[in-house]
Write a protein that binds this DNA or RNA. Sequence first.
DNA 1: TCAAAAGTGTTCCGTGTACACCCATGG
DNA 2: CCATGGGTGTACACGGAACACTTTTGA
Lengths: 250, 250
Amino acid sequence: MPRTIELAEARLAVSTVIFAREPGVAHDELPEQPVQPADRSLWIPLVRRLRAPGKGRWALPGGWLGAAESLEGAAARTLDETTGVTPRYLEQLYTFGAPDRSPDERVVSVVYWALVRPEETSGSIEDPNVRWFDADDLPELAFDHDEIVAYALGRLRTKLGYSQIAHAFLDETFTLAELREVYETVMRRPLDPANFRRTVEASGALVETGEVRTGTPHRPPKLYRPADPAEAGIQGAFRIPVAPHLRRHP
Amino acid sequence: MPRTIELAEARLAVSTVIFAREPGVAHDELPEQPVQPADRSLWIPLVRRLRAPGKGRWALPGGWLGAAESLEGAAARTLDETTGVTPRYLEQLYTFGAPDRSPDERVVSVVYWALVRPEETSGSIEDPNVRWFDADDLPELAFDHDEIVAYALGRLRTKLGYSQIAHAFLDETFTLAELREVYETVMRRPLDPANFRRTVEASGALVETGEVRTGTPHRPPKLYRPADPAEAGIQGAFRIPVAPHLRRHP
DNA sequence: TCAAAAGTGTTCCGTGTACACCCATGG
DNA sequence: CCATGGGTGTACACGGAACACTTTTGA
């Protein structure tokens, strides 16, 4: 028995939560001191809102959906326009559409999440209204963007455990220690270097380049690159448990 | 360097992929013969499109987003209006918004997926334009709905492996054999009854009701109900691997 | 009393984890 | 030559899987 429904005059927005291992140009100054990878944090660029609603607050980079572009295309475009960042990995996260999430008009936001390499963040726009924040130490954000970031962080931690996305944080070639540091940073716990090496090597997800990184004060580590997904195939999968030892009675 | 973008005049639709273990009233007649749970299939209700575009084709139940309702609310409402089904489990799946997915106007669809109990499907609308289909034997659907259903099936199979959603297919109380049949149907492989029992019992996700199901030709099985999630807590988790033994060289 | 499903016990093996140990380089 | 991170070897515990076995009912 369909009753009459007033249709929503909703505007369609696209926003992106971008994660990087290092902040881009503008960020809160921190005293530089050596930290363990598991104690390091992730960085997220935010944009200050110049208009109401939420004027003055920090918000996720985003914008309106264009007529001819795909959702992912809109995410990439608005990201580039607002922050100058071009992500290596971009995936849809969730669509937020509570009727009251924006005060004046109905806005439905398709939210993406992205991973970028260090070099990609360096091209980010220098603007007092764009700033990189520690993902674990964010200010209060506009709209429901706090909730969105928390959701994205959860997804990143989970997905890292069963997929190969960690590569998207790194340059073309990298050492196993660098890859391990990504896992340690995201999962916030140390990993055994020996076991990590074996797990990754056995998976076939990486191939040696034959090069080593020199200039370190110690034994030069081998450089790897991600295996062609086609070659890697099913065997390319490896699993790094997100939170082990939560099994037995705590 | 933001160039001018023509904003999309997109309409916001909501659709739902509904899964049930048994078809509702109207479905293709199949000769009733005993089948193994792992050989049984899932059922999905579809609605015949009465208007262009895609007139005559089968499509996912859905409709337009109402002004005052949440996305999930819209999914539940349109589902009820078109099929008469009220799902026990309803979760957002993905948002599809390719510019050309609907021929005339731009439509962005927020798609949900749902699980229903046998009793809930029996209340479904009797209408020649609503029919239940075998999820593994669908006709060619309108728009990009084939792609959507395939995506939803993948998510169901994956999520069943690490969450408790299987309950949503069953009545208030159920036997372990019934729960196991859900897993066998969705994962399309047989499970060892002994190991399944131990895994589930050890997890604390179920509690015995103290009752047994009588009337079977054999030993009466105990009836269980889902544990209160608060009590179950972290220990409430158990994992049934989706596809084991794909590890070593095939 | 018998067939068949419910439910229990036990063994085997892959995988994650800990940790001792060797290797190679810049300072 | 030595401190340090790169890289290898190995032993152990846990949990998934296989499967033999006992229990309980209706017909």
